[in-house]
């Protein structure tokens, strides 16, 4: 291996990198949109899952179990080729909807367990002060659940970001799709997929650090089991 070969490789890799980094915002945009949708759906269905109304509870359970039981790829096909052809959804909307409703089901379970982890005494204290169930949830339960929900919830975003690569299959030109096109055009499979992998890795590792930071932030001052017992 000569020095020239080495520099040649570096040159190719940086060319691929420079090309692909220009579409990475699509991956970010899809992930964030899908995740925002997932959080909203997750909160709604997580709360619905423990509603007093049996019909609402069963409905939320059906949503959660159905969407967790179907492969994401199938959901993407369904939203784009199935539903998308009927009500005319473009690739981006169909892709975001598919990833969003799928992750919404996972987020719902995270929210549900975050709510259920709060001691029942908190509900009783709030109710004894005349607060309604909704006020109790909003002012007492959810603020405490945040601390429990943030670590697994943020990990879902990392998973969501990685799974956004699946929407490449319906021709949405995000990072993976652009990588495939580039590799096919220039016969540079090795370099391209190496770079694609590295770009995903940079994003996921940065997010992992961010999650660690958030975990510290939400640990409210003077609040926690370790400091509660004296």
């Amino acid at each position: 291996m000569t020095m020239t070969w080495f520099f040649e490789q570096i040159e190719i890799l940086s060319r691929v990198f420079y090309y692909l980094i220009q579409v990475v915002h699509w991956t970010i945009l899809i992930s964030i949109s899908a995740y925002v949708l997932a959080m909203v759906l997750g909160l709604v269905f997580g709360v619905a899952r423990i509603s007093r109304n049996r019909i609402i509870r069963v409905f939320a359970g059906a949503y959660i179990n159905t969407l967790r039981g179907v492969p994401l790829l199938v959901l993407i096909f369904f939203f784009y080729f199935g539903l998308g052809k009927v009500i005319n959804l473009d690739r981006f909307v169909a892709g975001v909807l598919a990833v969003g409703v799928c992750y919404g089901a996972y987020m719902a379970e995270i929210f549900r367990s975050g709510i259920e982890a709060i001691d029942y005494g908190q509900h009783e204290a709030a109710m004894s002060l005349g607060m309604t169930r909704w006020q109790t949830l909003r002012h007492i339960i959810l603020p405490q659940s945040v601390r429990i929900v943030v670590p697994p919830g943020a990990n879902e975003f990392i998973a969501c970001l990685k799974d956004s690569s699946l929407v490449s299959i319906i021709g949405l030109r995000e990072l993976t799709r652009a990588g495939r096109e580039y590799a096919n055009q220039y016969f540079l499979d090795f370099h391209t997929w190496l770079v694609v992998g590295v770009i995903y890795l940079i994003m996921t590792l940065s997010l992992t650090r961010l999650v660690k930071y958030l975990e510290k932030r939400v640990a409210v001052h003077g609040y926690g089991a370790s400091r509660d017992d004296h």
Binding site: G121, S128, H139, V220, D228
Partner: peptide, 27 residues
């Protein structure tokens, strides 16, 4: 009717002042 419990059931995410303020504000 006010109630006080064996297990205190204070709201751990709120300061002492806000524990006492909250229901006055929202209820």
């Amino acid at each position: 009717v006010g109630m006080v419990f064996q297990a205190f059931n204070l709201f751990p995410h709120l300061s002492v002042l806000n524990n006492v303020n909250l229901a006055q504000r929202v209820v």
